[in-house]
């Protein structure tokens, strides 16, 4: 049976690299996102690179009425279902300070939108008794930092959600992988200056496939972020609140 990968946020740089990697293995891909022209180009690319089928579908994490369409397209493909979540948005903290209403969209993009879709998908995954969910969070979700704590809070919520989903679906043989990338050379961080321990989308995707093969639960990529975040998590709050890292 061929695999079907639902790819949420399929226009993102990491999603594009992930789509190619599963296309080369002959999977069917459901490319879900907001920009149909871009998704159609990604679908053509996936087909040329070996995807059994590539279907662009309109999906907006902030509009739950779009979720059914994604699910239908995936079920119609007839393959074994898998889902990879690459949605998320990171408005500058200063913009959120100026307009607190931006919080709703940030939380919907990174947490509640994909969580609701995964919840709709969960019974189907449980029924097939196999398959995988890849949820991309961020090292920013490990601690509330001065520069991006709303984004971090959304990613933290999503990580906790994935941990629960793993607990549930793991019992039926479905693997849930939480990915926590540090800065990746993508459009999202363009303009933020030089970032520590930067990696590339291709390297993140290679790490994701290794982690899936080894059935890892949580993946830090680059791996250096695991010790770094472990230390950061250990800093006592009275000290951390005075730091700006």
């Amino acid at each position: 049976m061929t695999d079907t990968w639902i790819i949420l946020g399929a226009s993102s740089t990491i999603a594009k690299a992930f789509t190619r990697s599963v296309a080369q293995q002959g999977a069917a891909v459901i490319l879900a996102g907001r920009r149909m022209d871009d998704l159609e180009a990604n679908a053509a690319d996936a087909t040329a690179r070996g995807a059994a089928q590539a279907t662009p579908v309109a999906f907006d994490a902030r509009r739950p009425e779009t979720f059914d369409g994604v699910l239908h397209a995936a079920l119609a493909s007839g393959g074994r279902l898998n889902c990879a979540v690459f949605v998320g948005s990171m408005p500058p903290q200063a913009a959120i300070d100026a307009d607190p209403a931006l919080i709703d969209g940030t939380i919907a993009d990174s947490f509640t939108g994909p969580a609701r879709l995964l919840q709709m998908l969960a019974p189907h995954l449980a029924e097939q008794g196999s398959g995988a969910v890849v949820g991309v969070g961020s090292v920013a979700g490990d601690r509330g930092r001065l520069g991006n704590y709303v984004y971090g809070a959304a990613k933290a919520g999503f990580a906790t959600y994935l941990s629960g989903l793993r607990n549930q679906l793991g019992r039926s043989g479905v693997h849930v992988l939480t990915v926590k990338p540090g800065p990746v050379d993508t459009a999202m961080i363009q303009g933020l200056g030089k970032q520590p321990f930067m990696t590339t989308a291709e390297a993140v995707v290679a790490d994701i496939h290794t982690a899936l093969r080894k059935k890892r639960n949580t993946l830090y990529t680059k791996r250096i972020w695991w010790p770094v975040m472990t230390v950061i998590k250990l800093i006592p709050e009275p000290i951390f609140k005075k730091m700006s890292i």
Binding site: T13, K16, A41, N42, A44, D45, T47, A48, R49
Partner: peptide, 9 residues
């Protein structure tokens, strides 16, 4: 180099 899609084959 990030604009590297096949648009039609």
């Amino acid at each position: 180099t990030a604009l590297d899609r096949v648009l039609a084959f």
